[in-house]
Amino acid sequence: MTCQHCQDEATVHLTETVDGQRRELHLCVACAREAGVALPESAPSLALDAVIQSLIVTNVGELVGELASLTCPDCGLKFMEFRAKGRLGCPHDYRVFARGLLPLISRTHGATRHVGKVARRRPAESERLRLRTQLRDAIAREDYELAARLRDQLRPKDADA
């Protein structure tokens, strides 16, 4: 397509609808600058992760764009995995993903504060969860010596007898 002013190659394409009539304008960069059209300084980044992040922010919102990069340090769950599967990995996920979970919980339950029965707390469970996560990571890295030590720590004490 050629520029409507100087017949060079048109790289700026504008479409305007006024009173139901559509008007298109095709300009080269020089003619677009002369006409006062604000142009970006550089071409947009076409890296795949940047494009995906841009699509997330555009279509789902800035909050989800920020949350997409969050990962729970205890269980390794990413926020986008939670969005896809609908399940959290550990109790710490509520704190890590609070900004994304509170609106969801509020919409679903009508409140964000629990009222009712509470399960008995077992303080050793969070330590066991952390050890299991470390065990999974050690196996993935093929660090079998560390994995064996972690496995031994996870075994119940009475199982050794």
Results as ranks from 00 to 15, higher is better:
Lys78Arg: 07
Lys78Gly: 14
Lys78His: 08
Phe79Gln: 01
Phe79Arg: 01
Met80Gln: 07
Met80His: 04
Glu81Ser: 01
Glu81Gln: 12
Glu81Asp: 15
Phe82Arg: 03
Arg83Leu: 14
Arg83Thr: 08
Ala84Ser: 14
Ala84Cys: 02
Ala84Thr: 10
Lys85Glu: 12
Lys85Ile: 06
Lys85Trp: 02
Gly86Tyr: 07
Gly86Ser: 05
Arg87Pro: 02
Leu88Pro: 09
Leu88Ile: 01
Cys90Asn: 10
Cys90Leu: 07
Pro91Arg: 00
His92Met: 08
His92Ser: 12
Asp93Lys: 06
Asp93Thr: 04
Asp93Ala: 09
Asp93Tyr: 11
Asp93Ile: 03
Tyr94Asn: 10
Tyr94Trp: 09
Tyr94His: 13
Arg95Ile: 11
Arg95Ser: 14
Arg95Pro: 02
Val96Gln: 10
Ala98Ile: 09
Ala98Asp: 13
Ala98Met: 11
Arg99Lys: 11
Gly100Lys: 00
Gly100Tyr: 00
Gly100Cys: 00
Leu101Val: 11
Leu101Ser: 04
Leu101His: 10
Leu102Lys: 15
Leu102Tyr: 00
Pro103Asn: 03
Pro103His: 03
Pro103Tyr: 04
Leu104Tyr: 02
Ile105Arg: 09
Ile105Met: 14
Ile105Pro: 06
Ser106Tyr: 05
Ser106Cys: 08
Arg107Ala: 13
Arg107His: 07
Thr108Asp: 05
Thr108Trp: 12
His109Asp: 05
His109Ser: 13
His109Gly: 02
His109Leu: 15
His109Trp: 07
Gly110Tyr: 12
Gly110Met: 08
Gly110Trp: 10
Gly110Ile: 07
Ala111Ser: 15
Thr112Asn: 08
Thr112Trp: 03
Arg113Trp: 05
Arg113Ser: 14
Arg113Lys: 14
His114Thr: 11
His114Trp: 15
His114Lys: 13
His114Glu: 08
His114Phe: 04
His114Ile: 08
